[in-house]
């Protein structure tokens, strides 16, 4: 179902202080890397809610990259440590969901490691190629077809379910 021009798409969550700055440095240094990555800036990798990672995968990403300061170097003392703890569990859970290990990656990249931004992104793109497209957005549509009116199973992204709070019952 996927065309030959398929290119892996990576959503990257980079912390403001180290990895985002390193990506800036890669730019200032005119390093060249694969154009498959879309960087979302957060103040700390600790802000990376596992929901974001799932939303990126469900929304069409083939891989998710999280970048933070090296352990011990977090601008917010230990935010990256909290990320590491979540990430270790998330990897186990994603395995249960059938998502390949290489699709979600956590890297510590300091503000001076512009070159590491390049090598990590290039490497990840190459690792995603043999896995092929995850294409969950299309996949959910496909699965949704078995329900009579063909409406998609649910909208993974976009507006959260319309709910209104009622008084405590």
């Amino acid at each position: 179902m996927h065309d030959a021009n398929w290119e892996p798409r990576i959503v990257a969550f980079f912390c403001n202080w180290c990895t985002y700055t390193a990506a800036d440095l890669a730019g200032v240094s005119r390093l060249k890397y694969a154009p498959n990555v879309r960087i979302v800036r957060l103040m700390c990798s600790g802000r990376v809610d596992p929901q974001f990672i799932l939303a990126a995968l469900a929304g069409g990403a083939d891989g998710v990259l999280i970048g933070g300061c090296h352990i011990g170097d977090c601008h917010y003392v230990e935010g990256n440590l909290k990320t590491l703890r979540r990430f270790q569990m998330l990897k186990r859970m994603l395995a249960e969901f059938g998502i390949e290990d290489q699709r979600v990656r956590l890297e510590w990249i300091s503000a001076s490691e512009g070159d590491k931004v390049r090598s990590v992104i290039n490497e990840m793109v190459e690792q995603l190629r043999p896995l092929g497209a995850l294409a969950l957005r299309e996949q959910f549509k496909e699965w949704g077809r078995e329900v009579a009116d063909g409406q998609p199973v649910s909208v993974a992204l976009g507006e959260a379910k319309q709910e209104t709070e009622v008084a405590h019952v």
Binding site: L54, M89, G98, F140, E142
Partner: peptide, 30 residues
């Protein structure tokens, strides 16, 4: 972890279900 954290809400979760390559391939033969 999946059974612990999604005991009642797996179909409503963001990923909804097993999305492994095998599961995705099965869809095509639907």
């Amino acid at each position: 972890p999946l059974g612990t954290f999604y005991r009642y809400a797996l179909p409503h979760s963001i990923l909804q279900r097993n999305v492994s390559q095998a599961a995705r391939a099965e869809t095509l033969s639907l």
